[in-house]
Computed example of a mutant assay.
Amino acid sequence: MTTPNAFFVPAGVSGDGHERVTATENTISLWAPTMQHGAPPSALLVRALARVDARGDTRISRVAVDILGPIPVADIEIRAWTERPGGNVELVVAELWAESSSGSARAVARGSAWRMRTTPTESVAHTGDPVMPPVSSGVDNTFGGLWASGYLDAVEFKFLTELGAAGPGEVWAKPKPVLVLGESMTPLERLFSIADIANGVGAKLPIDRWTFLNTDLTVHVFRVPRGEWIGVSAETSTGPDGIAMCAGTLSDELGPVGRIAQTVLVRPRA
């Protein structure tokens, strides 16, 4: 069967009226064929966070995603609500639910977002991070071996640095599939369909000797991205006790749009 050109396909609604989608092979992580890469479900959470009690005069400014366990390549239920309403600032929350191996449903990922009321500030706009080299200077890359996965195959890459090189890793990337079949991606959905690769882009550990799975991601977005390409500049700092942190900058072709941080669990391979 041909894989749909999407990370998820609509699967109706649950008995409680919650939207359901089915994850496709395009979501598969490099760590296991049964679990999703963190990027597609992060984008799915952002989709829900933007839609719940939507207001045209606000936008998402910060998203915190917690991965509560392996997110299966299976049917996913989406739940979202407004946690804290407000005129200028509001907090919205979304969860992704799936069946466990025992057949019981549980939350596998949770996202929260601050949505802020917008107002014109073009006259004082400022960017504090350096601009990445252009997409045209990147080198095409396809993954294989231990780096092979459905998700990585579903993304087009232009590498500015080699994986594991000294200093921040830098890459331009864009998803080939849409997020949900039959829909066009919003700019923030596109951003989050890529953002979670920061951990891999910034990694310094050889993947044949170590695993490094991020348990979360926090992204601050000071400008809504434009265009198809998302730039990631990131580097991971590893502590002496199996815990690491990846931090980086997210960009579009006009310049930086936000920053990302991830907590990383580091373990030697058996």
Rank of each mutant, 00 (worst) to 15 (best):
M35Y: 10
A6M: 04
T34H: 08
A195Q: 02
P72F: 03
A261K: 06
T82F: 01
L152M: 05
V52Q: 00
T3N: 10
K176L: 11
R117Q: 13
E83K: 06
T22H: 03
L44T: 13
P70Q: 08
I76R: 01
V92E: 03
T161N: 05
L265E: 06
E235G: 05
L265R: 04
I194C: 09
V266N: 14
M185E: 09
P4Y: 15
P33K: 10
K176G: 06
A39V: 14
S233W: 10
R106P: 13
L49R: 14
R259K: 04
G138I: 00
G200K: 00
S14R: 07
R84Y: 00
W81H: 12
W210H: 05
D241Y: 02
I230Y: 04
E228W: 10
S112V: 06
P177F: 00
G164D: 03
G167I: 15
R59P: 01
A198R: 00
G202I: 00
K158C: 08
A39M: 02
A247T: 06
W172M: 15
G200L: 04
A244F: 08
S61W: 02
S149T: 13
V264S: 02
H37C: 03
F159R: 12
V73S: 05
E83R: 08
V155S: 03
A50C: 13
R51A: 15
V63I: 09
